[in-house]
């Protein structure tokens, strides 16, 4: 990078791109599969649900191929999950980097969120292309609506991760809390069903799940034949705002909890 090119970018952008570069270089190094791991996990999830659907002789509840339907549930859920985990991991991974002057926790979190969103979106696009090659269908009917639903799922995960990591005194306790939350979330989100299939009293309860709305909105954008009368953007947006407020509170209250021995030079 030339000195001029480096100096031209605003400081915030330089910091964000440096954090992203550090993440990309460090995350999958030393592994034979390398970056391919990013695709292996969603493929395994999709494969498992596909096989389960086939064994149970269950068809897609939307007029589309099974692969596209499963992707429209699994990938926003994974985008949500990746954001939560990355936010919690970042608190531990960057606790020493935050000793550097001028590095704000918000800058680190923003960089991680951007990277995770980009990663999850790229995985979705690659799998859509793969599905096109296999089934001949590329199910993104209304790009902006689809992208908005996906962004709401990813954003809800980022906000939840921020709120939990900022309020947990230790990163491992945050991970334990989220493990308890993320497992049931898989079943209470419309990953292998659509919200309209749910009984009224169950739906009333699950309406509080922001991921339900994000997936419904994404499907309405993805599939020409699907219209969601349940999904609304207000629930995930409200959830994001509430989590950001909770995160700001936690950041002020528990700022920089590092053990004394960890700050001394070797």
């Amino acid at each position: 990078m030339s000195a001029v090119a480096f100096a031209e970018r605003p400081r915030f952008a330089r910091q964000v791109s440096a954090i992203i570069a550090r993440e990309v270089r460090s995350r999958y190094t030393g592994d034979a599969l390398g970056y391919s791991w990013a695709y292996v996990t969603p493929l395994a999830w999709i494969g498992l649900i596909y096989v389960t659907f086939t064994i149970l002789n269950r068809a897609s509840p939307i007029d589309t191929d099974l692969g596209s339907f499963i992707m429209s549930g699994v990938l926003p859920y994974l985008a949500f999950r990746y954001q939560v985990n990355a936010s919690i991991r970042a608190k531990a991974a960057y606790r020493h980097v935050m000793l550097l002057p001028g590095i704000a926790p918000g800058t680190i979190h923003f960089a991680i969120v951007v990277l995770e969103f980009y990663n999850a979106l790229l995985i979705y696009l690659v799998l859509l292309a793969l599905n096109y090659l296999m089934n001949g269908s590329f199910e993104v009917h209304h790009v902006l609506a689809w992208l908005f639903g996906f962004a709401l799922a990813s954003g809800s995960g980022a906000a939840l991760g921020y709120a939990v990591s900022a309020n947990a005194s230790r990163p491992d306790s945050a991970s334990r809390v989220m493990a308890v939350v993320l497992r049931p979330l898989f079943y209470i989100s419309p990953i292998f069903y659509v919200a309209a299939e749910l009984p009224e009293d169950v739906l009333w309860l699950l309406m509080w799940n922001p991921l339900l709305h994000a997936i419904e909105l994404l499907r309405a954008g993805a599939f020409v034949s699907y219209q969601s009368h349940i999904g609304t953007a207000w629930m995930p947006l409200g959830f994001i705002v509430a989590c950001v407020v909770a995160g700001r509170y936690g950041e002020t209250k528990f700022s920089g909890e590092i053990a004394p021995s960890e700050v001394s030079p070797e």
Partner: peptide
């Protein structure tokens, strides 16, 4: 990467 975070010139 740390130099870039600090706003220092990475090459130098």
């Amino acid at each position: 990467t740390l130099a870039a975070m600090l706003d220092a010139e990475p090459d130098r």
